[in-house]
């Protein structure tokens, strides 16, 4: 008699824990005619809880040294590498060819490493010492925007997800991600990778569910500082822009797809989720040329 396989219950990931949705609801996405599983149909309350977790983790995450954040991103890549078979299988389950699936996992690992490398460098690229005319030392540095809500790309369940999350957290932000609705498996498995990778709970929160249902809530939440929308549905984009006005959250539309391309390897993806802070301080002029003493 063949062994009875143990089936996996897919959960969501909030504040470093794996609850099912508080709503008790689920949905059954299919690929190749087969049901992928009973996936959590997250509610607006799950989103709220995830945002609370992201907010409370943000200050601590941003306060970690850039070197430390870099190591944590690298650690995610290491753990992902160790579990590559599982991801390849899930991608195949979700409809990918084997070669394609392997490529997607490889690229995801490499992309994490790419952004791990940026953690302690982007600041040098985007900072400036500004030569003001008065006797002041003036400099501008990037600072994380804060809590970022991400509507992850629908078509790329792992690479698309990683390509949005990595630059977001590399820059000291925390995030709440709504995974691909029809290809959600890798997102939850990726959460399992995160929970064993030294990523503090709450830095990355991953929900599954219905995009249409949750999109307006993502747009409207007053404690979300920025929102990344992946896709190109004009109606959704308009909804998001309008909803974002309430607290003037930053909206970033990434409609490209093409996650395999180098376009998703750029420090500008980090800088798009940064605020510029400019600081002034007087420079004493005593004993210097033009001394006013």
């Amino acid at each position: 008699m063949s062994r009875i396989e143990v089936l996996k219950t897919y959960k969501i990931y909030i504040g470093g824990k794996f609850p099912r949705t508080e709503s008790g609801r689920y949905y059954q996405p299919k690929a190749n005619g087969k049901v992928l599983g009973n996936i959590c149909l997250s509610s607006r309350k799950d989103f709220r809880n995830a945002t609370v977790a992201a907010r409370s983790a943000q200050v601590g995450w941003a306060a970690k040294s850039a070197y430390n954040r870099s190591q944590i991103l690298y650690r995610i890549a290491e753990i992902l590498e160790g579990r590559r078979t599982q991801f390849v299988e899930e991608l195949i389950q979700q409809g990918s060819k084997k070669a394609q699936a392997e490529k997607e996992v490889n690229l995801s690992i490499d992309r994490l490493i790419y952004f791990a490398g940026w953690c302690d460098k982007y600041m040098q690229i985007f900072s400036a010492v500004n030569p003001v005319a008065s006797s002041h030392f003036n400099f501008s540095v990037p600072e994380p925007t804060g809590v970022v809500a991400i509507l992850a790309p629908e078509e790329s369940g792992l690479l698309g997800l990683v390509s949005q999350i990595a630059p977001t957290i590399a820059g000291g932000n925390t995030c709440v991600v709504l995974a691909s609705e029809n290809k959600p498996l890798c997102s939850i498995t990726f959460a399992e990778v995160l929970s064993t990778s030294d990523v503090p709970g709450g830095v990355i929160n991953i929900l599954t569910g219905n995009r249409k249902e949750l999109t307006p809530h993502f747009g409207r939440h007053m404690d979300v500082n920025a929102l990344i929308y992946c896709g190109n549905n004009p109606a959704e984009i308009k909804t998001i822009h309008e909803a974002a006005v309430d607290n003037l959250k930053r909206v970033i539309i990434r409609d490209g797809g093409g996650y395999v391309s180098d376009n998703y390897e750029s420090p500008y993806l980090i800088s798009s989720l940064q605020e510029t802070k400019t600081t002034w301080h007087p420079v004493e002029k005593i004993g210097a040329a033009g001394s006013g003493y």
Partner: peptide, 10 residues
């Protein structure tokens, strides 16, 4: 005393 502030006032 901040010298730059003093100069500004002057």
């Amino acid at each position: 005393v901040d010298q730059v502030g003093i100069q500004d006032r002057v």
